[in-house]
C-alpha cells in the first residue's frame, strides 16, 4: 500500500506534472495567442483610426474649400452691387442672403466633424459677410433713422451740407497748387536750391523718390510729403518743418519746430531749439545736426536760431504719453553709427 501509495504518490505527481505542463503550455499558448490577437486588433484599430483622421482631414479640407468658394461668390456679388441697377438690386440682395443662409446650413451640418477652431473661424466669416451685406444694403437703400432733432439745427446743418457738396472739385485744386518754391514728383535726382530762391520762403518737397535734396539757405518753413528713400539737407529753417508720410529717408536739418507724422525707418540729424514731436511714426532715429557748407554760420545768423540750444535727443511722441517708459517708436542713433561727414556720401 505504501509502495503503491508511494508509487501512486510517485506516479501521481509525475502524471500530474505531465498534465500540468500540457495544461500550462496550453494556457500559455492560449494567452500568447490572445495577446497576439489583441496586438493585431490594436494595430487594426490604430490603422482604422488613422484612416478615420485622414477622412476627417479630408472632409475638413472639403468643407473649407467649399465654404471659401461660397464666401468668394458672395463677396463678388457684393462688389457688383454698385453696378447693378436699382430694379434688380432687391433680387440681388435676396440672392445674397439666400447664399449666406446656405453657408450657415452647410456649417451647421459640418460641425460634427469639424475641429472647434474651424467652426469658430467659419462663424466669424459668416457674421462678417452678414454685416457686409447689411452695410451695402444700408448704403444702397438708405433707411431713414428716427431721431429727435431740433428744427433749427436741421435747417442749419442742411444748409451746411448743401454747400459743402463740390468738395471733390476743390480737393484736386489743393493738391496741385503747392507753393511755387518746390520739388515735386521726381525720381533719382540730385536737387539743389540756393539762398536767393529760398530765403524767407516756404519750400515744399513732395513725392520724391531716390533723390538727394540740398537747400543752401534760410527757408521760413519747409513741408515734406511722401518722400521715399531720399536724403534731405537744409540750412537753418527759421520757423517750422513739417514732415508727413516719408520712409527710408535721411533728414539733416536745423529748425525751431519739427513735426514728424506717419514716417517710418528714417534718420534725423537735427538741431531743434524747441522739442521735436513724432506722431504715428516708427523706427525713427535721431542724431545731432552735422551738415556743413561755407555760408552756414551766416545763415544761422539770418535765421535767428539759437545755436547753443539743441534738443535733438528729447523727442515727444504723441502716441506714447507714458513718461516713465521710453517710447518704442524712436531712438537715438548709436554713437558708432553716426555719419561723421556727408561730403563723400552725397557728392
Amino acid at each position: 500500500m505504501t509502495t503503491m501509495d508511494s508509487s501512486v504518490k510517485l506516479a501521481a505527481p509525475s502524471t500530474l506534472t505531465a498534465i500540468d505542463v500540457e495544461g500550462k503550455w496550453n494556457i500559455v499558448s492560449e494567452r500568447l495567442q490572445k495577446r497576439e490577437d489583441e496586438r493585431l486588433a490594436e494595430i487594426q484599430k490604430k490603422r482604422e483610426q488613422k484612416s478615420e483622421t485622414a477622412a476627417l482631414q479630408e472632409s475638413t479640407l472639403f468643407f473649407t474649400t467649399e465654404f471659401n468658394k461660397e464666401k468668394v461668390a458672395i463677396e463678388a456679388g457684393l462688389s457688383e452691387c454698385d453696378r447693378v441697377d436699382k430694379a434688380n438690386l432687391i433680387d440681388r440682395f435676396d440672392f445674397l442672403s439666400l447664399s449666406l443662409q446656405k453657408m450657415q446650413k452647410f456649417l451647421a451640418e459640418s460641425t460634427m466633424f469639424l475641429p472647434p477652431y474651424e467652426v469658430r473661424l467659419a462663424q466669424e466669416t459668416i457674421s462678417k459677410l452678414q454685416t457686409q451685406i447689411q452695410e451695402k444694403r444700408d448704403e444702397l437703400f438708405p433707411k431713414k433713422k428716427f431721431a429727435f432733432k431740433s428744427k433749427k439745427k436741421v435747417a442749419s446743418s442742411e444748409k451746411l451740407f448743401a454747400k459743402t457738396l463740390p468738395e471733390n472739385v476743390f480737393q484736386e485744386k489743393v493738391e496741385i497748387s503747392l507753393t511755387s518754391c518746390k520739388y515735386e514728383n521726381l525720381k533719382d535726382r540730385c536737387l539743389e536750391k540756393f539762398e536767393d530762391e529760398i530765403n524767407n520762403r516756404d519750400v515744399a518737397l513732395a513725392r520724391l523718390e531716390n533723390c538727394t535734396v540740398k537747400l543752401y539757405g534760410v527757408p521760413s518753413a519747409v513741408n515734406m510729403y511722401k518722400l521715399k528713400n531720399c536724403r534731405v539737407f537744409t540750412g537753418p529753417v527759421s520757423s517750422s518743418i513739417f514732415i508727413t508720410e516719408c520712409q527710408d529717408c535721411v533728414f539733416v536739418l536745423p529748425c525751431q519746430q519739427l513735426r514728424i507724422h506717419t514716417t517710418v525707418n528714417s534718420q534725423f540729424y537735427i538741431h531743434v531749439t524747441s522739442r521735436a514731436i513724432i506722431e504715428d511714426c516708427s523706427g525713427v532715429k535721431f542724431g545731432p545736426y552735422n551738415w556743413k557748407y561755407p555760408s552756414l554760420d551766416e545763415h544761422y545768423k539770418i535765421s535767428g536760431l539759437n545755436r547753443n540750444k539743441n534738443s535733438w535727443n528729447d523727442i515727444d511722441d504723441f502716441n506714447w504719453l507714458a513718461s516713465d517708459t521710453h517710447s518704442p517708436n524712436w531712438s537715438l542713433i548709436p554713437e558708432g553709427e553716426l555719419v561723421k561727414s556727408w561730403d563723400e556720401l552725397i557728392s
Binding site: S156, K159, L160, K163, T164, F170, K173, V174, T179, S180, C181, N200, R201, D202, S220, A221, S239
Partner: peptide
C-alpha cells in the same frame, strides 16, 4: 504766417474753405 512770402492770402483761404457759406 502772412509774414512768409508764398503764404496764401486770407481771400484765397476764405474761398478755399468756403467760409462765405457759413450762416450759422
Amino acid at each position: 504766417k502772412q509774414d512768409i512770402s508764398g503764404a496764401l492770402t486770407s481771400e484765397a483761404i476764405k474761398e478755399a474753405m468756403d467760409l462765405e457759406n457759413i450762416q450759422t
